[in-house]
Design a binder for these strands. Structure first.
Lengths: 255, 255
DNA sequence: ATCACCAAGTTGTATATACAGGCTAGTCCA
DNA sequence: TGGACTAGCCTGTATATACAACTTGGTGAT
């Protein structure tokens, strides 16, 4: 971790990031001050300052002149930013998440699915169908296909306690995802699962996720239009917080 | 602009950003070196270094040790990323953009609008109603309110040639935007403007935009669900390009 | 008890200095 | 002519130092 080929300020950053992500330092905990880092890590104050300042820009910590540096709780939000795990979003709202598993079967990919996963027709995949509830109200139908080769353990997995997305990220880190958002009327089955009135549209998110350099799962997520919305925040390139071009962050998903 | 209350490094940044956005410095142009800034601006090299380094982090410039600092051409892409100007998106697809202006009137803000713009009930606003066409097919109904104080020239503006969003960004740069995406059935008027069948839902984007530190415009954008979708791309925090947490970029809007 | 004040610690900024390493153009030598 | 080398500029990093502004907690006077 503390690669001596890296610059000193980066080593300091890595050290603190490690402590934060390991939970050793939790939100609102105090981070060593610049002067403490000077003494304990044998660096100059400017180097400690740069490390802490960049951690601030990147949202890891917040600094208050006169008081100190504290672990930001934005990181957890940032994890929640993960559009991937609806269970986390719900529990973070202090609501109750439950889930029905309607299907968990091994199949041969064909048509649209094979194309989305970029594999031959007939390749082994798992087909998952789940309904997610927030405080007992159905909020998402998750219709997901996963490459069997990538996640052979799917068959024996109880997806009521660990959502598919959590399970998949535990196998390999997410590399990249591509998603499409649409407004669509649901078919009868989805409408029944979401307990929606006849003429209510769905907000549909289709997401394709990469790991090991190739697409490994394709999910179609239906949400009831009257109970769900996507909210985002746009920051132009130049502004204070670090930026990677004009960007819309999907922050929370609720209603 | 060069507010002397701002820190010196920020003044340097502002100076260079101004030159870039005014076109005085174009992509691949050379930016003054640290030593040139030291001499011409009477700052220490570390201050010049910080200014240029932060501009690098923010994507304005690229630096090559031994050669110099050069304006990045990522800015142009970043402008395309702008989710704001549907005319640009359409022409970028080499399609034909046209536009009907159904309304351009001065009103008193009330209810939801006053609340969204964070002003007193009765404050003067312009109410714009436009329909945008792609190759003659209606693709967006733009229902927008603008603070009259911010854009007094709205009344005389011909929004067929310059879209409201282009006009507004010409008045003052966009600072921040907040948006919500929903799936909703349109009312009769919107359905007629978009020439949609009876039971087709809309993808609705509601966007509030800040300039000079306060919200100046609120737009409700209706798109026909069968002809429009949002696509995005997700890159996890750790990967190559600078990162500000998990982020979904809204790239293009089409279908 | 309350208020005013001050000292210590913290961040924020700015400067001067130093050395390492990358890149380029020009020079010098064969 | 061609190739090796070097001087000079550039960025990247690191240190020591300094002053300003903010926050907190304690001290002392009222």
């Amino acid at each position: 971790m503390s690669d001596s080929s890296k610059p000193r300020y980066q080593q300091l950053k890595d050290l603190i990031i490690t402590q934060i992500s390991s939970g050793e330092l939790g939100p609102h905990d105090r981070v060593p001050s610049e002067n403490e880092l000077v003494e304990r890590m044998s660096v100059s104050r400017m180097t400690a300052n740069r490390a802490l300042r960049e951690l601030t820009d990147e949202g890891y910590v917040e600094r208050v002149a006169g008081r100190g540096t504290f672990v930001s709780d934005f990181r957890s939000r940032s994890h929640m930013l993960e559009v991937h795990n609806i269970a986390d979003e719900i529990t973070q709202r202090r609501h109750r998440h439950t889930c029905d598993v309607l299907r968990n079967s091994r199949q041969h990919a064909r048509g649209e699915i094979a194309k989305a996963l970029d594999v031959e027709q007939g390749t082994d995949v798992f087909h998952l169908l789940l309904v997610h509830f927030e405080n007992g109200v159905p909020i998402q139908v998750e219709d997901r296909h996963v490459l069997a080769e990538f996640a052979p353990g799917c068959a024996g997995q109880d997806f009521r306690s660990i959502t598919p997305s959590a399970y998949l990220t535990s196998i390999a880190p997410l590399q990249e995802a591509e998603q499409v958002v649409r407004a669509q009327l649901p078919n009868a089955a989805v409408r029944r699962h979401l307990q929606m009135p006849e003429d209510e549209p769905c907000l549909v998110v289709m997401r394709r996720t990469w790991a090991h350099g190739r697409p490994v799962t394709f999910a179609r997520l239906h949400h009831p239009g009257s109970r769900y919305e996507l909210t985002g925040h746009y920051t132009p390139p130049g502004t204070s917080t670090s930026a990677s071009g004009g960007v819309v962050q999907l922050e929370k998903l609720q209603r």
